[in-house]
Amino acid sequence: DEFHFHWNGRDIRVRGDSEELRRLIEAIKRGELSEEEIERAIEILER
């Protein structure tokens, strides 16, 4: 699976399928994380 979302003017695409990944992306979409937490998560996910 590939998750695709927009954040902070960026087009983010992440491959993978796990419950943890889904929860993280939902939290990002709901605005539950700080900008710094989101940046760090995206860096890890894009590897």
Rank of each mutant, 00 (worst) to 15 (best):
E43M: 14
S18P: 07
R47M: 14
S34W: 03
E43W: 05
G31C: 05
S34Q: 08
G9S: 02
L24R: 01
R47A: 13
D11L: 15
E36W: 15
R13M: 14
S34T: 13
N8E: 03
I42M: 05
H6C: 06
W7K: 00
E37N: 05
E46Y: 09
E35M: 12
D11C: 14
L24F: 11
N8I: 02
I25F: 15
N8C: 06
I44R: 10
H4D: 04
D1K: 08
I44G: 06
I44M: 11
R23H: 08
A41Q: 09
A41W: 13
R22N: 06
S18I: 07
S18G: 08
I12M: 03
R10Q: 03
G16D: 04
E43Q: 12
A27K: 15
A27Q: 14
E37L: 06
W7G: 00
D17P: 11
N8Q: 09
I38E: 03
E37I: 04
A27M: 14
R13I: 15
N8K: 15
H4F: 11
L45N: 02
R40L: 10
L45D: 01
K29S: 09
R47V: 11
R47Y: 09
V14Y: 15
I28N: 01
D17I: 06
R13Q: 09
E19H: 12
K29Q: 10
E35H: 15
E37G: 09
G16A: 10
I12V: 06
L24I: 09
G9K: 02
H4Y: 07
L24A: 03
L24W: 09
V14S: 02
R30P: 01
R47E: 12
F3T: 03
L33M: 12
S18N: 10
G16K: 05
E26N: 15
R22M: 12
I42T: 02
R40H: 11
E20D: 11
L24K: 01
E26C: 15
F5R: 00
H6P: 01
A41P: 00
F5N: 00
I28S: 02
E26F: 14
L24M: 08
E46Q: 09
A27N: 09
D17W: 11
E43Y: 08
I25R: 03
W7D: 00
R10V: 03
V14T: 03
G9Y: 01
A27C: 04
E37H: 05
E46N: 07
R40M: 09
I28E: 01
E37M: 08
E35R: 12
I28C: 02
E36L: 13
F5S: 00
D17G: 07
G16P: 09
E32M: 11
E35S: 13
E39C: 04
E43I: 09
S18F: 07
E46A: 08
L21A: 13
E43C: 15
E32W: 13
F3W: 13
E26Y: 14
I38L: 10
I42H: 02
I42R: 01
L33G: 02
H6Q: 07
R47W: 07
E26I: 15
H4S: 07
R15A: 11
R22W: 15
D11N: 11
K29H: 10
E19W: 15
R23F: 12
E20T: 13
L24T: 04
E32G: 10
I44D: 09
D1F: 09
R23S: 10
E36Y: 14
E46H: 06
H6Y: 08
R13L: 14
E46G: 06
R10I: 03
E26Q: 15
A27R: 14
G16C: 03
R10C: 02
S34V: 06
I12E: 00
R30F: 12
I28V: 05
W7N: 00
H6R: 06
S34R: 07
L45V: 04
N8D: 02
E32Y: 12
G31H: 11
L24Q: 02
E46D: 08
D11K: 15
E46M: 14
D11F: 15
D1C: 07
I38N: 02
S18D: 07
S34M: 09
R30G: 13
E46S: 07
F5E: 00
E43G: 07
D17F: 08
S18V: 08
R40W: 12
R47I: 11
V14W: 14
E2T: 07
R40I: 08
D11Y: 15
N8T: 00
E43A: 13
E19K: 11
N8H: 05
H6T: 08
L45R: 01
R15F: 12
L24H: 02
H6I: 09
D1R: 04
E20I: 12
I28R: 01
W7P: 00
R40V: 08
L24V: 05
I28W: 13
L33Q: 03
N8G: 05
D17C: 04
R10D: 01
R22V: 09
G31P: 02
F3R: 02
I44K: 11
E35Q: 11
G9H: 02
I38M: 13
R40Q: 12
F3A: 01
A27S: 11
D17Y: 07
S34N: 11
I25G: 03
I44Y: 14
E32P: 02
I44A: 10
F3H: 04
G31Q: 07
E35Y: 13
I44S: 09
D11I: 15
S34A: 09
I12N: 00
D1A: 09
I25L: 13
L21S: 12
L33W: 12
E43H: 12
A27T: 11
R15T: 12
F5Y: 04
G31I: 03
E20K: 09
L24G: 00
E19Y: 15
N8F: 03
R22S: 06
F3G: 02
E32T: 13
N8A: 06
H4N: 05
I42D: 00
E43V: 10
R47K: 11
A41S: 06
E46K: 06
E2I: 09
E39W: 13
R30Q: 11
E26L: 15
R30T: 09
E19N: 10
E39F: 11
V14L: 08
D17V: 06
I42K: 01
R15M: 11
S34L: 06
R13C: 06
F5T: 00
R30D: 07
I28T: 02
S18Q: 08
K29E: 09
G16R: 04
N8L: 04
E37D: 11
I12L: 04
I38K: 01
R23V: 08
R15L: 10
R47D: 14
G16I: 08
E35L: 10
G16Y: 06
E20Y: 14
N8V: 02
A27H: 07
G31D: 06
E2D: 12
I12D: 00
E32K: 08
I25A: 06
H4V: 14
E19Q: 14
K29P: 01
